[in-house]
């Protein structure tokens, strides 16, 4: 469906990757870990190695959860757009095909101290 308007009204997205100075938005959510009220929005460079970003940015963000220390990025199950996805964390975002505004969910089965 299109917007109801008196004259043509084109799509004007304001969140295109061109606005992010060479970086891109990536969202993260740790399934069943609701201590963190909402998924995180981050803005890594596509050429950053995923594991480097996870250690530098995501691990400090989730550090307050009692399970955080036990998270092994090579063992977590990744989900993108409701489908399982294999991520080689040793490679970069772009090498893994992770695009602008992708939401990456990670699951750590059997690990749930707070919201189990």
């Amino acid at each position: 469906m299109a917007v109801v308007a008196l004259k043509p009204y084109p799509l004007r997205p304001v969140d295109g990757i061109e606005h992010y100075h060479g970086d891109q938005l990536v969202y993260w959510s740790w399934d069943h870990h609701l201590m963190f009220a909402a998924p995180f929005i981050t803005c890594p460079s596509p050429s950053t190695r995923v594991v480097d970003f996870l250690e530098a940015t995501i691990r400090p963000l989730i550090a307050a959860d009692p399970d955080a220390d036990r998270v092994d990025w090579t063992c977590v199950e990744w989900i993108r757009d409701h489908e399982p996805i294999a991520i080689d964390v040793g490679k970069s975002f772009s090498e893994n095909g992770i695009g602008h505004k992708d939401l990456l969910r990670f699951r750590t089965p059997g690990m749930n101290t707070l919201c189990g």
Binding site: A2, V3, Y9, P10, R12, V14, D15, Y20
Partner: peptide
Amino acid sequence: EPEKYVQAWMPMNQLFQ
């Protein structure tokens, strides 16, 4: 009505812009 919402000024996204 995507025309209306794709131009939304999202505060968190704007911080990164």
